[in-house]
Structure formats: structure tokens, C-alpha cells
Design a binder for these strands. Structure first.
Lengths: 235, 235
DNA sequence: CGATGTTTTGAGAGGATTCAACCACAGTGG
DNA sequence: CCACTGTGGTTGAATCCTCTCAAAACATCG
């Protein structure tokens, strides 16, 4: 599924900009660069599959990737999105388990693949790197906990509003106030944890209430405070 | 809320039995022991509160503790339980955020409190310790992801059955096949993410179907395979 | 142009919540 | 000793939210 197998120029991989790697010595850094493989992926291609063993992890230098689990009847549950600057897939390396999620490209992406051994070595030998990586993991864990509480306690309506606000926070708006991430109705349903039809109905209600405007898959945000209110967001 | 402030004997704290600490040098270990405070907690007492800054974490040497988040209208959402051998509270130390959950004692507990600095130092200086801790965190993350998928996709009935099976796996049964953890109906509802009344109705259905037997808060497991089937558990 | 996939709308069924009343039980205090 | 109070458990009925199924409109693409 990869567009090509030819490793890209290392310079394309902006790893050095990530806070995670700021504590590396120049030796460690050179080695990291040597072992890193730059790749391009088209929409729809899969970086790794749930249940597979993976031997490395990815730094995302461009694009958007959805991380999902497959539930009952093969229905996908989107756990989160990863974008420029995020790293994904390291969980399995460290916990030494097979991948518990699938990572699939939503917006054409550029990634740097880094072998798992490199990661393990860095964790073992560079304390500050360890701390930094631990912080990333722990923040993810905190977000997962919030997500659990939301799904368990909020209505579909609240959750959908909340997700739109969250997408706004994570991906921002373009010059026309349109969300910088485009999802199918089904994908939206798979984040919220509901049926596609429910998303469609609620979206058009939000539109009637002048909170958003719809144009195909593009969602224009008109009234963020109202969305926050509907979503019961207080932070 | 602590039963006393007198540090218990270090020997009570069976930290050395935890795989996490097996890679410590004897110097590190002695220091860990010196900085550890043993405590006893009664049912109902709170180890740390959501929103508080905490400066250390806990190793649980005895008892059961529920970890929950407070959602809308103050409704608690139980994220998980911790018992003998588990460590809790380290997430906030590492992510350098305030506690995102509350930890409250369900079954009289004994804990070892370890200062956050000690943890940070170990992560920075002992690679194998880092790896081990990372593994624990990553496994928790994996479980959280599964939980999200379950809550989002399964019915209340399925989830309740699943939770009973899970409690069975985590806490086991006594000689009379009764779950070794006793929860109020409300607490069960707060795990499943539903109303107390729904739990009550479903439990009595399960009882009618001869899958469980009820005696106050005690749940006797009669037919585990049937529960697994109702809960759509394939693993 | 047909073929496929996505979006939309409608109607009906069913699951789950809410509200209310009631019981059981333990602890409190007069 | 007994009324009082609070908590937890149970049950019923009505309501509402959400899902499912079905069909049609629409878009996209080779």
C-alpha cells in the first residue's frame, strides 16, 4: 500500500522537532537518523493492523491517521486521531504485545518508521527520553479515561457536539471556518459510538440550530460556544 | 481518613515481590525502602482526589481500591479496580498533571506510599525499571482502549455480563463460588455506565437464567460460559 | 452509462432512563 | 424502647432516546 519503498530523504523526517527527541545526544541522534525510514502513504493505506506484531513505530511528519479497534460484527471504534508531530505504534513495542489497534491513513501522510530496538535502547539508556515518552503515554492514558467517562455518561447528542469541538481543537479551522479534517458520516459515528443514521440526523439538527453548516463532508463551525454547551464541556 | 499516621514496618510492604522492582540495585532498593511509608486505609477512605496534585504514588499490598472519574452531575465512572500488587497514582507524577481520577478504598487496604521524586529518579537512572513501568502503563492503555470499544458498542446487558466475568478473572471466587469482591448495585452501575435500576433488573434476569445467584451484595457465579456468551467475550 | 458507495429520510421497535413508591435495615437520639 | 432518618435495594409505568430496517436520492468513477 505504500506509495514507494524507496526511503525518502532523512531531512523530510522532522523528527528533530519533536520534544521527545530533544534530549538525545548527537551520537544517539545520528544513529536514530540512520535507522529511520521515511515513507509516504495514500488515503486508505494501513500502517499496521490490529493483532499483528509490529517491530517499529511511526513518527508522523504529515497527514492524518485514524487509530481504531475492531469491535463486534467488525464495527470499527475510532480511539483517536494522530497527526503531524504525533508518534504511534510504540505501545505494542513496549508492552511487548501485538497491536491492539489498526492505524489507517485518512489524509495523505508522510511518516518516519523507527525500529523498535532503537526505541528500547533509548528508553534503557537515556533517562530524559524515558521521562518524556512516559509523559506522552500517561497523557494518552488520561485522555482514554476521559473518553470512557464521556461515552458511558453522555448522550449521543452530547458526544457528537463534543467530538466536533475536539476536532476543532485538534485540527483547527481553515480561513472559511471549515474543520481541517474531513470524515465520512460513518467515521463520525465510529468515534461517537453510534449508528451512521443518528449522526446524520443530529448533524442536520445542529445545522438547523445554526451551530454548523454542512457542505458534503465539510463541516463549517458557526457557533462554537453553543456546541460546547450542547456537549457539556466545561474545561 | 487514615487509620493512623504511624508508618508501619517496612517489611509489611511487600514491594520487593513486585516485578517492577526486580531490576533495582541493592542501593536503590535500600533507598526505596527508606522513603516508603506504609499506611492502612478503611473502606471509604480516599487515597487521592481528582484534581489534586499528588506528590507520590501507591503500591497496594492488601485490599481493593476503586479508581473513578467524576462525570456529569457528579456521577462517578469507575475506570478500574486496583488490588494487591498493583501500583496507582504514578500517572500524574509522570505526566506532571493533576490527578485525573479519585482512588477510594472498597476493601480495607494496606499501601506503601512512595514519593514521586523517587519514581522519577528510578525512571531516569534505571533503564530496566523504565521498561517495566512503561509496560505497565502501556498495558493499562490497551485495556482502556478495549473498554472504550466495549462501552461504545455493547448493550448494557452485554456489558454487565462482561463485567461479572472480568471481576471473576481479576478477583476470583471463594470456596462457594462467590465473587471475592462485593460492590453495591450503584457501583456496578458506575462500572457498566448505566442506571442503578437497570443493573438490578438485569441481575435478576441473570438470576432467572441460572447464570448467577444473589445474596445481598454477594454474587455467586453458577454458569460462567453462559455469562461469557451473553457478554460476547471471545478471548 | 451502469455500478458502487455514501447520504438522507421515514417508520417502527426496543432498549434504557426516569420518576415514583415501597421495603428492608442499621444507626441515632430522645 | 421506639420513632426517626438515611442508605441501599426493588418494582412498576411512562417516556424518550437510539437503533434497525427499508427505500430512495445522490455522488463518484471507471
Amino acid at each position: 500500500m505504500k506509495q514507494n519503498n524507496i526511503p525518502g530523504k532523512k531531512e523530510d523526517c522532522l523528527i528533530k522537532n519533536h520534544p521527545l527527541f530533544r534530549h538525545l545526544t548527537s551520537t544517539e541522534f545520528d544513529r536514530l537518523y540512520d535507522e529511520t525510514v521515511t515513507e509516504h502513504h495514500k488515503r486508505g493505506s494501513v500502517l499496521y493492523h490490529e493483532g499483528n506484531r509490529i517491530n517499529g513505530f511511526y513518527y508522523i511528519s504529515e497527514g492524518i491517521i485514524k487509530i481504531y479497534k475492531t469491535g463486534i460484527d467488525g464495527k470499527e471504534q475510532i480511539i483517536r486521531f494522530a497527526q503531524k508531530g504525533d508518534i504511534i505504534g510504540f505501545r505494542s513495542i513496549l508492552s511487548n504485545e501485538q497491536a491492539c489497534t489498526t492505524a489507517q491513513v485518512i489524509d495523505e501522510s508522510a511518516t518516519c518508521y523507527i525500529p523498535g530496538e532503537t526505541l528500547i535502547n533509548l528508553v534503557k539508556n537515556n533517562g530524559n527520553f524515558s521521562i518524556e515518552l512516559m509523559q506522552i503515554t500517561c497523557r494518552e492514558l488520561g485522555q482514554a479515561n476521559s473518553y470512557i467517562t464521556d461515552i458511558a455518561q453522555k448522550s449521543v447528542r452530547e458526544r457528537l457536539a463534543e467530538i466536533i469541538v475536539q476536532l476543532h481543537n485538534d485540527f483547527g479551522l481553515d480561513e472559511e471556518n471549515v474543520l481541517r479534517i474531513t470524515l465520512t458520516r460513518e467515521e463520525l459515528a465510529n468515534i461517537v459510538g453510534t449508528a451512521t443514521e443518528s449522526v446524520i440526523r443530529l448533524l442536520s439538527e445542529f445545522k438547523q440550530d445554526k451551530m454548523i453548516e454542512l457542505n458534503g463532508r465539510k463541516i463549517k463551525v458557526l457557533n462554537l460556544p453553543a456546541l460546547r454547551k450542547v456537549g457539556n464541556i466545561f474545561v
